[in-house]
């Protein structure tokens, strides 16, 4: 864990790739939860928007030693704290402060209405976690009815990305406040993807709480993060007992 100042809350996620069945429920639940728009052709991956993208990995061995794995990738909410610029790569480059890390939660947010669409953050992000709205979002007429009021729709010309369903955090905080609490219980706030996962491969919680499940798992012997050598300090950890997967995670070929 990096030494950012905080009041003891650093939300993070652990994704167990041994348990992940590659069903894509996380990705679909995310799209529903966050009003992510779609177009008639969703196969152009340079143009489509997928906050939680599932990557395909394989061990490169011939049949029948071939093995594949799927790796869900939300925004990793980097916790990098390099002196003297303690910012995630994307927030560091944003010229209009449209994206920044909330030091109370560690979540990296993105405010579409502030975004000027320069896409500097997209090139800065080491994980392809950011997406650009090349067109105005358009839902076929009746489908606008299913848009949730919790998340605004975005517009043409701005960047968007995973927020760890920060609106759920707001809601959980408000509920706790109504009950006279300032602290949230473990599991009171989880993003839609974690809630959806049928194999229970995803765990979410406060990484700074040493007793939380997420912190326990992140300390485990099979835990790793993507491209760790970049020192971006992602708050999304992966677990895998497979060596080839762990190798791929750091691009060590």
């Amino acid at each position: 864990m990096s030494g950012n100042k905080s009041n003891g809350v650093r939300y993070g996620m652990v994704i167990d790739l041994d348990k992940c069945t590659g069903c894509m429920a996380c990705s679909v639940a995310c799209q529903q939860e966050n009003n992510v728009s779609f177009r008639e052709d969703e196969t152009d991956k340079l143009r489509s928007i997928t906050w939680l993208e599932v990557f395909y990995l394989d061990n490169g061995k011939p049949y029948p030693e071939h093995r594949r794995a799927y790796m869900p990738r939300p925004c990793l909410h980097c916790d990098s704290s390099h002196h003297p610029y303690p910012y995630p790569p994307c927030t560091f480059v944003c010229p209009v402060n449209a994206t920044h890390r909330d030091e109370e939660t560690g979540l990296v947010n993105h405010i579409p209405v502030r975004c000027i669409g320069c896409r500097y953050c997209i090139s800065a992000c080491s994980y392809h976690a950011r997406y650009f709205n090349w067109w105005d979002p358009k839902w076929p007429e009746p489908m606008e009815k299913m848009l949730t009021p919790d998340v605004s729709t975005r517009m043409r010309g701005v960047v968007e990305k995973c927020t760890m369903c920060v609106h759920r955090l707001q809601l959980a905080k408000e509920r706790a406040f109504m009950e006279g609490r300032r602290e949230l219980h473990e599991g009171e706030y989880v993003p839609a993807c974690v809630e959806a996962c049928p194999a229970r491969a995803m765990t979410f919680g406060n990484l700074l709480d040493p007793h939380s499940e997420v912190a326990t798992l992140a300390r485990g012997p099979h835990a790793f993060r993507l491209l760790e050598r970049l020192a971006t300090e992602p708050k999304v950890y992966y677990l895998s007992t497979q060596k080839w997967i762990r190798k791929l995670a750091d691009n060590v070929m």
Partner: peptide, 22 residues
């Protein structure tokens, strides 16, 4: 900077962008 930002906001909030009913 303020003007660039305002222009961005203004040029993005077109009425045809769906706004879910609360």
């Amino acid at each position: 900077w303020k003007m660039a930002d305002d222009t961005a906001i203004w040029s993005q909030n077109w009425f045809w962008r769906p706004s879910p009913e609360r």
